[in-house]
Design a protein around this nucleic acid. Structure first.
Lengths: 243, 243
DNA sequence: GAGTGGTCTAGACCACTGG
DNA sequence: CAGTGGTCTAGACCACTCC
């Protein structure tokens, strides 16, 4: 059942084994998984090793624990995807809306000092700057400015960016796989330009979102700053307790 | 140094002890923390127990490990553990600030119809309502109202909620383990009450955060609505691309 | 009372880093 | 080489849940 002499740690082998049962639906949400003592007998390992496999899976959201009762398979589908990285197009699709864009600026420019630090490239390197008014069902919702290192995606501006998702182009045209993104969100007042483009009658709040996105293998692919109309947009996320 | 007979687990006592040294700057970023074997001698505990304290802190982003060299204090940048569920107190601690509270309302009231749906309890059930002005280094930062099913934590109001973390009380006094939380964030204008309590001179934006938190084994433990000063607070999160 | 997870011990061997 | 974290063992006692 497990290989005690191989290079793979025992607890990882146990983890993989349970993960398989979950993914192949031999174990379904809210089914009980074998107890720590059962696993240690089944695999011929100590209870602490079985425990390490289970508690890692609990931490990662695959399983949950009910004190004195047992460990169970977690519900995945409900919240899955809310903490995942999506662009404007997918975000709107999830809300049942159709995304489109009006391009305000699309150019290749030298990169400022501050931006070079964020994108982890040399100052003055060429970057693609792409400013778009993002519409949901034809109504202005956000003003979005993306900064992308030009050497990572030469020829980006030849594609139709009014209807296509930028992330879709990254994936299909350049073969990029997105990794992690860091976001910050804050509430501010709309400035004049935002007010005009978003169609606000008077002063109003906007949700300012900054995102730094990395590819799976490390390099920063974009820095995006967006201003969402406060009265029309809510940001959703799911947090998992870390212990 | 540690209390072996008390109700607090040894590894948590060790964790708190190291956390204190980090917060009081006795240990600075990139300083080495005592090794697992050193800690087990210092506290008179086994190495596995010391290890549990350290590895939890690594997972939470306080420390990092360098293989074969040692364990070190992490740079408290906006890096890790940001997608984990924390309360105001821990959030401020991560930013190097001290959290405190002014209690505006603490009572047991019957639950409204709308709230009953969110908390998944019967309408008119008793709930604890706790409204607090949250301060960071003595400066008002957020107005927070928590709604908690009373039957889950009877006697909650007897505890000191001005300095204690609500989540700390959940954990130590009731033995709760937090699971997932769903949050929504939006930008609005401060209403009169928020403006007065948060100390805003005139109209200003606030970041409105709603959170529904569940325990590990399912039940909803709280619904919290918070209004953060837009000019003093940024929300951080990390998104992971869903493959 | 029997089973569960939560904590803890006192050892052990390994791969890795530094001097 | 001595020290580090990574893994693992075979026990132990506890609080909890269900019957």
């Amino acid at each position: 059942m497990v290989n005690k002499d191989g290079p793979t740690p025992l607890y990882l082998q146990v983890k993989e084994s349970i993960l398989e049962r979950v993914e192949q639906h031999n174990l379904r949400p809210h089914d009980r998984v074998p107890s720590e003592r059962e696993l240690s007998q089944e695999f011929g390992i100590s209870r602490m090793t079985a425990r390490q496999a289970l508690s890692e899976m609990v931490r990662e959201g695959w399983l949950y624990v009910s004190m004195g009762k047992g460990t169970y398979v977690a519900e995945r589908k409900l919240d899955q995807g809310l903490e995942t990285l999506t662009g404007f197009t997918d975000d709107m699709r999830r809300r049942g809306l159709t995304a489109s864009s009006r391009i305000l600026q699309a150019a290749i420019i030298p990169c400022s000092l501050r931006l070079a630090e964020v994108l982890k490239i040399q100052p003055e390197s060429a970057i693609v700057i792409l400013e778009r008014l993002r519409l949901a069902d034809q109504v202005p919702l956000a003003l979005e400015t993306a900064h992308i290192p030009h050497h990572l995606c030469p020829g980006l501006l030849q594609y139709d960016l009014t209807t296509s998702s930028l992330y879709e182009i990254f994936r299909t045209k350049y073969g990029f796989r997105l990794g992690k993104a860091k976001e910050t969100l804050e509430a501010t007042m709309a400035n004049d330009r935002e007010r005009e483009l978003l169609g606000l009658a008077g002063p109003g709040p906007v949700l300012l979102i900054e995102r730094v996105t990395c590819l799976e293998d490390g390099p920063v692919i974009e820095y995006v700053k967006s201003a969402y109309r406060g009265d029309r947009y809510k940001f959703h996320t799911v947090l998992q307790h870390g212990s």
